[in-house]
Amino acid sequence: MRHVGVVTAAAFLLLLVVAALFPRLLAAGDPTATDPLATFLPPDSAHLFGTDQLGRDVFTRVVHGARHSLAIGAAATVGGLLIAVVWGLLAALSGRFGDAVLMRVADALLALPGLLLALLVVLITGKGVVGATLAVAVGIAPGFARVVRAQALVVRRSGYVEAAIGLGVPRPLVVLRHVLPNTFGPLLVLATVTLGVSISTGAALSYLGLGAQPPTPEWGAMLTESQGFLHLAWWAALFPGLMLVLTVIAVTVAGRHAQNRSEGRYAS
């Protein structure tokens, strides 16, 4: 029973990756092609998910949107990880004072709601895909940084690091060769679990008008556009959101699976 869920999630994720890389395999049309004679058509065999206020095919837009929504979430997760690795390692290795300062900054940022922190970043970067991605990355970084630091502290006191230092290996090399790789395992698991949240937050920023801008077929931006016409075309709001939910569920199921499998290996 458990396996059915994981396999279904994996299959769905595979389909998503295909949609993101080769959208034309699944939907050959142009996601921004308008047709003034075919506005607000309900779902039928010609338009599987119906058409929107400009007569654009919702199915084509949803398929082509996978690229944007996944890219923001994935890039933000990787970016957040990179910031956190530098932050956490610096804290763990820079003595008591540096550690205290860096971790209190993380505490202060964690006291702000993640979305508010993201909004502050958008203030600096301006609206757009790059700004929104960076905002999500900064939003998840403080939490990650604490995990990196905790893990690095454990690794630093381990026998093999002491042995390496005893053997006269230079400090930077110890960090690169021993501390970093052993910190990375649990972090990767955390990243898979966080990916879903990142995709969802990225879409939320686009929905609020701060990320991908119309007519880009990003799922959050599509929902903003659809909201003016809910009384005429529920399908234009249903399908982009449904894809978002299914994506987050699939990522979460896959992430939990990875977490369960690795729990034995990275138990701390």
Partner: peptide
């Protein structure tokens, strides 16, 4: 799992 994975803006719109 479904509810946690549902972004609140879409939940509200629906």
């Amino acid at each position: 799992l479904v509810v946690v994975s549902t972004p609140s803006f879409w939940l509200g719109i629906m």
